[in-house]
Design a protein around this nucleic acid. Sequence first.
DNA 1: CCAAGGCCTGAATG
DNA 2: ACATTCAGGCCTT
Length: 280
Amino acid sequence: MIDFSKINLENTINSGQVFLWKKQKEFWYGINGQDILKINNFGKITSYSGNKYDFFRNSDDIEKIIKSISKDKTTKLAVEKYFGLRLIRQDPFQCFISFIVSSNSNIQKIKSSLEKISMKFGKKIEFDNKEFYIFPEPKKIANATIQEIQSCGVGYRAKFILDAAKIVESKQIDFNYLKKINYKEAKEIILSVPGIGNKVADCILLFSLDKLEAFPLDRWMIRILKKYYLEKFQLETKTITEKQYEVLHEKIIKHFGVYAGYAQQFLFKMERENYQKNWL
DNA sequence: CCAAGGCCTGAATG
DNA sequence: ACATTCAGGCCTT
């Protein structure tokens, strides 16, 4: 009898979804928006504020999802190998900024930039006798200058970050609304933000806005698809244009189903581990 | 609609 | 040492 409720914390945190996490002794500590989460080995969450979070999406029927996405040998292997890997439901604004920062970058640098952003613009909080800087509120970034944001090592993304924060602050984008509408509608809205393209939009939708059919296609996923699904998805072109991204996504949904985002996370994790890439 | 080039930055590679 | 390449893209031409 398989216990589907089991969560593998290490694999989940080290799968490119979140960046402001660190392990101290037997606990993982992480910044989730305006809050700090502390997680023990059993996946039990306590928070600085006392608020409750379904951070690991326990309300999802994981058994049903695993069965639903296990459509081929490769996915079955990934799901088995990284059993307990979960998608995370993270703070939308932090996720939004994090993946704008992530574009054309790598995990170590994303982490470093986000730490600097938190330290510069976020509140310092003591929790468990440790110091943390929580993620800044939209207003705080929206009122900053490009130079201040650039000092966090984000380069040309500084303007994107500033404008994105302004868009959220002015309520042109309302994450609670995006959660209610469907994937395609929400994606169209997110894509209107400068600095956000298909891949970044899908990350935001999948990791913070409950759109499980989002399937971020980055260099790694393209590499994976070419390796294991070459004929199935007919990947003959070198670069993925906007149109090709859309067409490919449709084929992916047809194959993996509506929980494709989960499949993506397992495949991504497996391939990165195969190449022994570092995480946090 | 597609292809090519530029872009901040820091670590890795030659 | 120093130059070049590359990294979880996006935008403009």
